[in-house]
Amino acid sequence: MLTINNLHARVEEKTILKGLNLEIKPGEVHAIMGPNGAGKSTMGFVLSGRDGYEVEQGGATLDGNDLLDMEPEDRARAGLFLAFQYPVEIPGVSNLEFMKAAVDASLESRGEEPMSSAAFLKKAKEACAQVNLPLAFLKRGVNEGFSGGEKKRNEIMQMILMEPKLAILDESDSGLDIDALKVVADGVNSQRSADRSFIVVTHYQRLLDYIKPDFVHVLSDGKIVKSGDASLAKELEAEGYAWLEGYDIEENSEASA
């Protein structure tokens, strides 16, 4: 489904990704862990096409299509979804209007009819209930005045409505209490299927107790330095990152400072 091949990317003058390789097959859940500054968020931004992130080398394909050659909206329509670590507030644009425009854009790109307002509202209400947000949140401005946890749940609601092929969850667990964490994890688990894949970016093993990954990777200084199964996350939790081969303590302490 997703193939990342020797990806190098920089922001302004600083190279962040330095030869990232990753292969994700349909239905798989991959967790990516690693210290601050390793390039975890950069990976999501580069794949989704954020301005200012320049690819120097390598590539990424989604279902064989060159992802990096597409406009951000086309990547989303092709089935890529990024749950933001810091979702953006958009006052004056209602959550419902925003999500309908998003879903309709994807439908239209596939030559399908947009959903009727009533049908979409019904779906949106279900998704809203599923992530345990009051229905009033559909009418409110996108993320406007939402708490940190509410924003994260709103991201999951969008994911549920957009039915992506590949979802990247960028620290969807940060700042959540245990109840909110379960809501987010339940939302993700409800969407797991044989043809949908996930990249779960996290600092903590805690989330992986609820979303069981097939693979765990450690990203350090722009590339994957170790891969394993779910037990790797437990080791990392116990030992930290310093024992990993190829992990430069000095550089990484600088990056996280």
Binding site: P72, E73, R77, F84, I90, Q158
Partner: peptide, 16 residues
């Protein structure tokens, strides 16, 4: 123009 809002919307498939 709020560029981060624009990117956020485009990342959901909405055209520029």
């Amino acid at each position: 123009l709020d560029k981060s809002a624009l990117y956020y919307m485009m990342s959901r498939g909405i055209s520029k």
